[in-house]
């Protein structure tokens, strides 16, 4: 159907699509209701990964995937209101490809892949190659986001989001962090501080290198601060109605510092 009417807009929870329709930002000739497509609405584990269907609502991610995908579950908890979390899912977040999408930082931090399907076949795209620009992605007109495949957590994960209200708020900036204590890698994802969600590659390399993975002591202030500064340096924020570029950079350095401390504390406890 998507191939036959590529201008049809797929809709699941409608979190973004209905806002655009209601505000008359777009007038698609057709909507493609994904609500009753069973293949999209479940998740399963598969060889150390979770294959998460595109329409699994955030509320289920919070309730069912807190152990396997803790970073994504924490991000899902910050999405909108209970009503929105009952309807919205990761597929729509990716389809909109907003730099402020809450699911994106944990997908980047964990090295998730996005599954795209069309009559031409199925392809998978690494999350950090999915986004092209503000609300632009590699998703072709005849394709649907069908699932994301996320490695099961191999270490502590964190997600933190700054908004000017204590609930139901779009990110001014956000940060996802995933530690892999087996491979000793550090993953990052920055939200709402650039044209797309971003990874902070230099910060990842720095942390992977200097973190004392063997018999871990407490994290030093120097490491936490340097990590925060490298994350802030990776961002390319703008001034907009939700906050200034300078504030976003500053807040990201604080979020990165704090989340690394929390994650590292978990490593030590384990």
């Amino acid at each position: 159907m998507k191939a036959a009417t590529p201008e049809a807009v797929p809709i699941a929870g409608g979190t973004d699509v209905m806002v655009e329709l209601n505000f008359d930002k777009r007038r698609p000739p057709a909507l493609l209701d994904l609500g009753r497509v069973a293949e999209l609405s479940g998740w399963r584990t598969d060889d150390g990964h979770v294959r998460l269907g595109a329409t699994v609502p955030y509320a289920r991610i919070v309730g069912e995937l807190g152990d396997l995908l803790p970073g994504l579950a924490m991000a899902a908890r910050t999405v909108g209101s209970p009503q929105i979390r009952n309807r919205g899912g990761v597929g729509g977040n990716l389809g909109s490809a907003s730099p402020a999408g809450d699911a994106h930082p944990p997908l980047l931090a964990t090295g998730a892949t996005v599954e795209l399907a069309s009559v031409r076949g199925v392809r998978t795209v690494p999350a950090d190659e999915f986004f092209l620009g503000p609300k632009r992605s590699v998703l072709a007109a005849d394709e649907l986001v069908t699932a994301v495949t996320v490695p099961s957590a191999a270490g502590p994960q964190q997600f933190a989001k700054v908004g000017t209200r204590n609930a139901m708020v779009i990110a001014v900036c956000s940060f996802g962090l995933a530690l892999d204590t087996g491979t000793r890698r550090v993953g990052t994802g920055i939200g709402s501080a650039g044209p797309t969600p971003l990874r902070a590659a230099a910060a990842e390399d720095f942390a992977a290198e200097v973190l004392p993975w063997d018999d871990p002591p407490a994290l030093t202030d120097e490491v936490a601060r340097e990590f925060g500064e490298l994350v802030a340096a990776a961002a390319t924020p703008i001034d907009d109605v939700r906050g200034s570029a300078a504030y976003r950079r500053r807040a990201l350095s604080v979020l990165a510092r704090r989340t690394l401390r929390w994650a590292w504390q978990d490593v030590r406890v384990r």
């Binding site: 924490m74 908890r77 910050t78 997600f159 933190a160 989001k161 609930a167 708020v169 704090r258």
Partner: peptide
């Protein structure tokens, strides 16, 4: 978290 600045967005565990 609901009683801290930032609420459930998990921005602080008491720091700052």
């Amino acid at each position: 978290l609901r009683e801290l600045p930032g609420g459930v967005s998990n921005t602080t565990h008491g720091e700052g």
